[in-house]
Simulated scan of single mutants.
Amino acid sequence: MSEYSKKIFRDNLQGLDAYTRHKLFMRDYVNFYGNNGQPSNVETKTEFDILKENHNWEQRVAKKYYDKLFREYCIAELKYYKEGRIALRWRIEKEVITGKGQFICASTKCSNTSELKSWEVNFAYMEDGEKKNALVKIRLCPKCSNKLNYSKQHSEIKTEKEVNLEEKEIEQETRHEKRKREDYESSNSDKKKKRESTSERSKKEREGNSEDIESQKLESVDNNPDDLSERGKIEDFDEFFTGLFV
């Protein structure tokens, strides 16, 4: 297949979500390998469809995708989860094609498709008379995830996108906390400076008032004794107001 044709194929995949790509590959798989060789009906032909008719590269892509999926995920029977008994099995062809256990909850009694999480489980199985073990993924909705982890907490498998998103959120939260701390320290520093400035200004005013009072006292102590009492009240108010307007 030419590089140009491969580019067309890749371009057609860009922008598609995971489930849409899955359905596209599974349609190709069924067309080329399944349904007793009978292709599915296609209402309209696009440039992508025409290229598929003349080349077998997409066939190999679909087959490789299917083969990888066949042992990538498993199905679970969670009926006896409270007893710590979780039964696992490989998916059958129909389940692989429909996305059961990948885009649909892997519990045999559940068909939820939202908020699925991937968990790593140790799957013990028999093959050719030999006992084998494999670490496989199991995709479950929140309710079924709680059942799986009822007796034993399994490791959650996160996509690179989820990991990057979490790291980004942590980084943003760290920057936010740093800004809050800096703003708090700056605010406290400004308040402290303002308090010191107000206190210094009040002190100078009191000293100035005291000097004026002493001066006036010398000049008018014999002329108007009532003024001393009034000025004393004003000084008391100045002290009372100190700190209220910071």
Rank of each mutant, 00 (worst) to 15 (best):
C141S: 08
K143N: 13
N224C: 06
I213W: 15
K82T: 12
E83C: 08
D190N: 11
G243M: 03
G15H: 09
R21L: 12
K178N: 06
S40P: 12
K45G: 00
N12V: 07
F25M: 04
V42R: 09
R10G: 06
S2D: 14
E58R: 09
D128S: 15
G208A: 06
K204F: 13
E93Q: 01
C105P: 04
G99M: 10
L116T: 00
D67L: 09
A106V: 04
D190Y: 04
K64S: 15
R175H: 14
Q59K: 10
A87M: 04
V121Q: 11
N36D: 13
I8L: 10
S229D: 14
D17F: 03
S202E: 04
K23S: 07
K178C: 06
K143H: 00
R206I: 06
E166T: 06
R139K: 12
G37R: 02
E156T: 06
E160Y: 06
E211N: 07
C144T: 03
K131C: 14
E58Q: 13
D17L: 06
L78A: 01
K6W: 08
V42L: 10
K63G: 04
A106P: 10
E173I: 01
M26D: 11
H22L: 09
G101E: 01
I97S: 02
S2G: 12
F70H: 01
E219Y: 10
R201G: 00
D236K: 02
V246N: 14
P39G: 02
F123G: 02
N35K: 07
R179C: 12
N36Y: 09
C141Y: 03
E127K: 06
E160Q: 07
E182Q: 06
E3L: 10
S114D: 10
R91L: 04
G208F: 07
H22E: 09
M26Q: 13
E211P: 01
S2K: 04
S107N: 02
S2F: 13
S199G: 15
R85G: 08
N146D: 01
N224V: 03
V246F: 07
K63N: 14
E120T: 12
Y80P: 03
K137E: 02
C110P: 02
F123K: 01
S114R: 08
Y33F: 15
I8A: 01
S107M: 00
I75E: 08
V121W: 14
N54D: 06
I138M: 04
C144P: 04
K204N: 00
V221H: 14
T46W: 07
D67F: 12
I170S: 03
E95L: 03
